[in-house]
Amino acid sequence: MAKLILTHEVTGLGTPGDVVEVKDGYARNYLLPRGLATTWSKGAEKQIAGIRKARKAREIATLEDAAAVRTQLQTQVFTIAAKAGASGRLFGAVTTSDIAEAVTAGGGPAIDKRKVEIGQPIKAIGDYQVQVRLHADVSAQIDVRVVPEA
């Protein structure tokens, strides 16, 4: 078992600043290469306070605020213009940062790209539903429309 400090939110494992114990292979092959965690040490324990302070500044404070943001997000359709071929297939894919920018450009609140979860890669023109984690207990399903770039 490897003892790690999470630097990013990992669904089903924890939030930034949490100290977790995971199997060695999961740590070595997934968490550490992707930069989602760092190895635990006495010195690194001091960094946890800084990580938690930064997380508090970014996240939505209360459950009521998160519910209000969810209502606002779910009533809109956010449009993303992407380069596409004649068949409607995209040159590349729509990323979480593209979705976060589209929400901000569409008049929604600024959301962190790390809170956006895409179920299947978006690689074609069309309408999609994307999950956004707003709070530990609140998440929103937002509608994203991908259109060809003019």
Rank of each mutant, 00 (worst) to 15 (best):
A2D: 13
A2H: 11
K3A: 05
K3W: 07
I5M: 07
H8D: 10
H8T: 08
V10S: 03
T11Q: 15
G12I: 10
L13A: 03
G17S: 13
G17H: 13
D18H: 15
D18W: 12
V19L: 13
V20P: 14
V20H: 11
E21M: 15
V22S: 06
A27L: 09
A27Y: 05
R28Y: 02
N29Y: 03
N29G: 05
Y30P: 06
L31P: 06
L31W: 03
L32W: 02
L32H: 03
P33V: 05
P33C: 02
R34Q: 11
A37D: 05
S41Q: 12
K42F: 09
Q47A: 11
I48W: 10
I48K: 08
A49T: 15
A49K: 15
G50V: 14
R52A: 07
R52P: 12
R52Q: 15
R52N: 09
R52Y: 07
A54T: 13
R55L: 13
K56N: 11
R58Q: 07
E59C: 05
I60W: 00
L63M: 06
E64K: 11
D65E: 15
A68T: 08
A68C: 05
R70Q: 06
R70V: 01
Q72V: 05
Q72P: 02
Q74R: 02
Q74K: 04
T75E: 12
T75V: 10
Q76Y: 04
V77A: 06
T79S: 04
T79M: 05
T79R: 10
I80L: 05
A81P: 14
K83L: 12
K83S: 12
K83I: 10
A84N: 07
A84T: 07
G85C: 10
R89L: 09
L90P: 06
L90A: 04
F91G: 03
G92T: 15
G92E: 14
A93T: 15
V94G: 01
V94D: 02
T96C: 11
I99L: 01
A100L: 03
E101T: 12
T104N: 14
T104L: 14
A105G: 08
G108Q: 03
P109G: 00
Q120T: 13
I122D: 01
K123I: 08
A124G: 07
I125C: 03
G126D: 04
Y128E: 00
V130R: 02
Q131R: 14
Q131D: 08
V132A: 00
H135F: 02
S139T: 11
I142L: 02
V144Y: 01
R145P: 05
